[in-house]
Design a protein around this nucleic acid. Structure first.
Lengths: 326, 326
DNA sequence: GTGAAAGCGCTAACAG
DNA sequence: CTGTTAGCGCTTTCAC
């Protein structure tokens, strides 16, 4: 193994000079800098991460708790994680994947100084991890906006604004009765923050326009077709539908298109929307961007920069096929 | 921060004794052991991971390159990763998530001694990472069975046997013309090892029974319905269908059921199969188990235990609804 | 059965 | 602008 001492010797300088060349923490003459860099290059020197973090008291590692099996929204979770990893690497950080849903894992990672900070996904209102986080010395960021997380830094997509945007768009298209086909019942019953915020925004906007609206849980499977049928049977005057359910999207959209005369808008990542040509519009769920935004927030915290407690990414509406004239 | 010295002082012993109590690497009298353990408990002592790995020259971290955005098979990828993380933790290992598809990332992680070993998913035949792996000192395991990985340790599901099993089951059900509706064209064109092995097994078994069979790529979207229609239009005598395509499964199975008089078997994780009630049978793709098997393999390598170069998990057929009498 | 002490490879004072 | 050196917290020889 090549150590800093080898590099120092090869370059004919002291080890501290090598260290300072690599960190840039003090001014070095161009000449020695060149010599050191050549030695580093030739020896393919890679600083020993543990030695570095032992001495510097920081690991350049961020711990991540991601829901690896929620069943729901796998695609979105993966994109968020991809965004996190990409952004972290862009700032010289690595990601340590912690087992999900485990407050002890957070204590372990920070207690053993394995990570400088924590990133948490899929945190619920009464989640014991929230209390644990507050006690830890390491900074943390939640991807999401759970109740009871006051004071903790949260980054999320603005689901409430997305709900409003979808409602307003459907209303602008001329629909006078609309419905939201949403997450599976389990998700709603867990009081998942995003699902509640989405329907709150949707219903509020509809109420402001005096447009009757309903919200329907929906399984992620093929059974979702039956949900569509049931909703339209109960409320035949529904002509505008807003879909937020990754697994059911294709089925639901196909069914609505088959029945004709209606508009369907979905909230989902753009690449998913493109595979569903019958959508009138879609609101992009910028999952990867959400991951990078959360990572930027945690890096800002680590850098001691002032960081807003809550950051919500605004929704953007994208057009699909021409609208049905309602 | 609580250090080993604090524990030693509290227990009235030397730091080496504390170290040996924790590692169990030498015999300690029950009495001092108790005293040390009480001190550890009371102080909530957590050994500093970097200090430990600097001194011990091992990190207890496994680097993982997982495809975070393949688009295809997200569900399976997540389950594999979940299995990896769970098994790793069960053996006191953590997982460092490396950015995918990046040979330099492998060099960086091992060169900086951030990881003891590497786990790679989604490796292709001509993948530059294979060459890189060979040069590294750290042991590695591939989840998959790419060509050109001779000598490297590989763990995968036995797709070829699964293809055979599906064919034989359809034939046993009485079908005399069968088809495999498989991965999207992109996947097949990348010469993804698992897709090729699956169809090889499927076609071989059919040939042995003199049953004509065909293999059809299929998009993961709703367009898959059109593929079904095209296949059955071209070969109306096809009554047995084997599906291996996570995204398309629900659509394809629904279409086949709607057309009637046919049997459909799928290769997918069991929990997915359960959401598709019209399947006659399914072959479980034990994704989580695959992750843990790969992890056990790498841990065995790290322990210096003899480990087979290739380990293939055998397929298991599970019955769904009663078969169509063909 | 237990302790003392020499590193592990690096960072960051401190000293020129 | 550069070098010397004291740790960082732990593991592991030696030594008793």
């Amino acid at each position: 193994m090549v150590t800093i001492a080898d590099v120092a010797q090869a370059a004919g300088v002291s080890i501290s000079t090598v260290s300072y060349v690599m960190s840039g923490k003090r001014t070095i003459s161009q000449e020695t800098k060149d010599r050191v860099e050549r030695a580093v290059e030739e020896l393919d020197y890679r600083p020993h991460a543990s030695a570095r973090s032992l001495a510097s008291r920081s690991t350049n590692v961020i711990g991540l708790q991601a829901p690896l099996r929620s069943g729901v929204d796998v695609h979105v979770v993966m994109e968020i994680v991809a965004g996190i990893v990409r952004e972290a690497r862009a700032h010289q950080y690595d990601i340590l994947l912690l087992t999900s849903d485990d407050a002890e894992g957070l204590r372990r990672a920070t207690g053993a100084s394995m990570v400088d900070a924590l990133l948490l996904m899929d945190v619920e209102s009464d989640d014991p991890r929230i209390k644990t986080l507050r006690k830890l010395s390491a900074p943390s960021v939640l991807v999401g906006l759970p109740q009871g997380a006051d004071g903790l830094t949260c980054v999320d997509f603005d689901f409430e604004a997305a709900g409003r945007a979808a409602a307003e768009r459907l209303i602008a298209l001329g629909h006078r009765r609309v419905a939201l086909i949403g997450s599976p019942r389990e998700v709603l019953e867990r009081h998942t923050s995003y699902a509640e915020r989405l329907s709150r925004g949707f219903l509020a906007a509809c109420a402001e326009h005096d447009i009757p609206a309903t919200v329907h849980p929906c399984p992620t499977t093929h059974e979702s077709v039956a949900v569509v049928d049931a909703v339209l049977a109960a409320h035949p005057e529904v002509t505008g539908v807003f879909i937020h359910n990754e697994g059911a999207l294709a089925h639901v959209a196909a069914r609505i298109a088959a029945l004709g005369g209606r508009d369907a808008i979905a909230l989902c990542p753009e690449d998913i929307a493109r595979t569903v040509p019958t959508l009138t519009d879609s609101i992009d769920l910028p999952a990867e961007e959400l991951g990078s935004a959360a990572t930027r927030a945690i890096i800002a915290l680590l850098a001691g920069e002032p960081t807003p407690k809550v950051r919500l990414l605004p929704p953007v509406l994208a057009s699909g096929r021409p609208a049905t004239t309602a």
